[in-house]
């Protein structure tokens, strides 16, 4: 009798843990996506910076703001892009840290779930034998 109740408890526990795990996995996936976006943006900005560096000082540079092209100083544009790259890199680093944490957590959760599963299975097996 008690064994069956503990079994049920274990199963409930397992379910909860599994739910947590799946939530975590979703988080991780979301973060991965965000990170991917950031990486793409970073690449684009690096490209822009490279091209801007290649321009001569007297070149006309415009920035598209809403529907209009606004003329910009080349030096200013370069500074802006550089700042943006800095920002994105920092963001990327932050995301990496978050991702790392999440993945660690995920791994530990996975382990606990696995252990629970084993326990449930062994309990069930024991019960089956008894009957």
């Amino acid at each position: 009798m008690s064994s069956s109740s503990t079994l049920r408890e274990l199963q409930r526990d397992l379910e909860n843990k599994a739910n947590d795990l799946s939530k975590l996995q979703k988080d991780v996936a979301k973060n991965h996506q965000l990170r991917k976006k950031c990486t793409i943006q970073l690449g684009e900005n690096e490209l822009v910076l490279k091209e801007l560096e290649l321009l001569k000082e007297d070149a006309n540079v415009y920035k598209l703001i809403g529907p209009i092209l606004v003329k910009q100083d080349l030096a200013e544009a370069r500074a802006n892009v550089r700042k943006r790259i800095e920002y994105i890199s920092a963001e990327l680093k932050r995301l990496d840290a978050i991702l790392q944490d999440l993945e660690d957590e995920q791994r530990s959760k996975q382990e606990t779930v696995l252990k629970l599963q084993q326990r449930v299975q062994s309990l069930q097996a024991g019960k089956g034998k008894a009957q």
């Binding site: 943006q41 822009v48 091209e51 801007l52 070149a59 920035k63 598209l64 910009q72 943006r84």
Partner: peptide, 25 residues
Amino acid sequence: FMVLLGDGYYAERTSKQTVEILKRR
């Protein structure tokens, strides 16, 4: 040519310069 460099930045370029940019891409 008004060349989009990315991220909303445009530059005025001649044909030759534009081709260079395109080749790098």
